[in-house]
Design a protein around this nucleic acid. Sequence first.
DNA 1: CGTGTTCCTGACCGTTTGGTCAAACTCTTT
DNA 2: AAAGAGTTTGACCAAACGGTCAGGAACACG
Lengths: 205, 205
Amino acid sequence: MAAGKPRTRIQQKNNAAILEAALEVFSAHGFRGATLDQIARAAGLSKPNLLYYFASKEAIHVALLGALLDNWLDPLRALDARGDPVEEIVGYVMRKLDMARAMPRESRLFANEIVQGAPRILDKIKGPLKTLVDEKAVLIRGWAGAGRIAAVDPYHLIFSIWATTQHYADFDVQVRGILAPAGEAHFADAATFLSHLYRRALATP
Amino acid sequence: MAAGKPRTRIQQKNNAAILEAALEVFSAHGFRGATLDQIARAAGLSKPNLLYYFASKEAIHVALLGALLDNWLDPLRALDARGDPVEEIVGYVMRKLDMARAMPRESRLFANEIVQGAPRILDKIKGPLKTLVDEKAVLIRGWAGAGRIAAVDPYHLIFSIWATTQHYADFDVQVRGILAPAGEAHFADAATFLSHLYRRALATP
DNA sequence: CGTGTTCCTGACCGTTTGGTCAAACTCTTT
DNA sequence: AAAGAGTTTGACCAAACGGTCAGGAACACG
């Protein structure tokens, strides 16, 4: 079983194939809605073979979430105290929007998990995620205190950025349904709008 | 069976109890994650009795979504061409935020459905919802054209309002996890922030 | 080549799930 | 009070599900 890191080439390949397949299936149907058979088929393996690599369905899910959470937070981590405040935050919005476009499955995976109460990653939310957000909130509050951006609540600013950007991944079906048949380039329009929104909101008078 | 509208008092009572129970269970676990036994228990009925009132699990879900969609769109419908543009839009944001606080289960029900591809309400999204949004988009675009608000894409403005407000219902666990132990009054803070955000974004120079 | 380890599979199992059904109970109506 | 419609239930079913297991196939290595 793959408790630690994969050791052989076959383990590496199959482990990756399983996580890729699990991302596809879990993000589309949620934890409960996904089945081991679906994941196995998507990974090109038999069900017992799946369970040779991962002890259980839940183990796959946990491994997947753990492997992705770090990358998911990279854009926020990159928020730089030395840069221009407005440009830093708008840049963060753009990076987050780009992730929603390039990695919608990852976004939906987290959305599914959190909407249903985050039973499997609540500790990571209250731990590493909260720590990171707290840290960046201090930074943003500092910018506001120094008069370099408008005085806004840093936590709700971050929440709004998450909400507006991830919306294009999580609610993709709705967005397309309303914009259709026009708007195939709706990510570009979203970037324009969000850039305007946050520049205006953060500008100092 | 309750194909049409309920006729007897018992039917009225049980129908309502079932929809209330279904809202509770579906919103917390998603369609696939919810079981008929759970719903039946929450409604105080036996499982076969549930199926006396609704033909199937899916029928309950569809009935629930249909019954709620109208109320869900009321705040947007109330957007009034005769009012002050900025106040109308900010008022819409506040009403939507208040719904997220007062009706989080309804919000999560829709979130669950749409994240997983909206298999059961895609037609309503492309139909009545799109029609309503198109109509309000014309109104907002008119305001922008007349220079009464800043020139913004009305569709992405509406998307951002949905995203930022529903975020507090759909991602409630995450919000609380990050704000804890402080911030029990986080809806008031959210209102302040969003009011600032949209006033700034829409103000004319 | 042989041998031990890793990898893979078909058959199987217990449980849960959505759904059925005949029979019984209850309420309303005359 | 009797009939008939409306309501409820326990027992049951087939399918799907997560997971197990004994053994066989493929591979690495001396």
